[in-house]
């Protein structure tokens, strides 16, 4: 267990704002949003042999260890990530962290 974690959340386009809000309410100081596209396993659907990927947003939030669990679970609950198809959340253990505002 390191001192800091990065929480990565992948949700459908338009939900990033909500994720950031929940994270903020639970003590996270900031985050970064990356527009991206996702392709699932059986979701491959095509139009004229061209794949149509769905639009997603990847959100990166760095939190100190004592906050990670709270933020992660709050987001999990608020966006109902346990419900199928709503998104995905993972945490990475960080070694060096600079610039995180406390």
């Amino acid at each position: 267990m390191n001192a800091f974690q990065a929480i990565l959340i992948i949700v459908g386009r338009g939900s990033a704002d909500r994720v950031m809000q929940i994270a903020h309410e639970n003590g996270a100081k900031g985050g970064t949003i990356v527009p991206c596209r996702g392709t699932g396993h059986h979701d491959s659907h095509e139009l004229l042999y061209t794949a149509l990927d769905s639009e997603r947003e990847l959100i990166v939030i760095v939190t100190p260890g004592d906050l990670t669990k709270q933020v992660a679970y709050a987001i999990n609950e608020a966006l109902a990530l346990d419900e199928p198809g709503n998104g995905l959340l993972m945490t990475l253990e960080l070694d060096e962290v600079k610039g995180l505002l406390m």
């Binding site: 699932g40 059986h42 979701d43 659907h45 139009l47 149509l52 199928p84 198809g85």
Partner: peptide, 22 residues
Amino acid sequence: LLHKVRMRRLEKKQLARLAAAD
């Protein structure tokens, strides 16, 4: 219009698959 129909069908398919898995 084609895109709309496609995306809608996909959503349905996804939901059905997830419900089955559940």
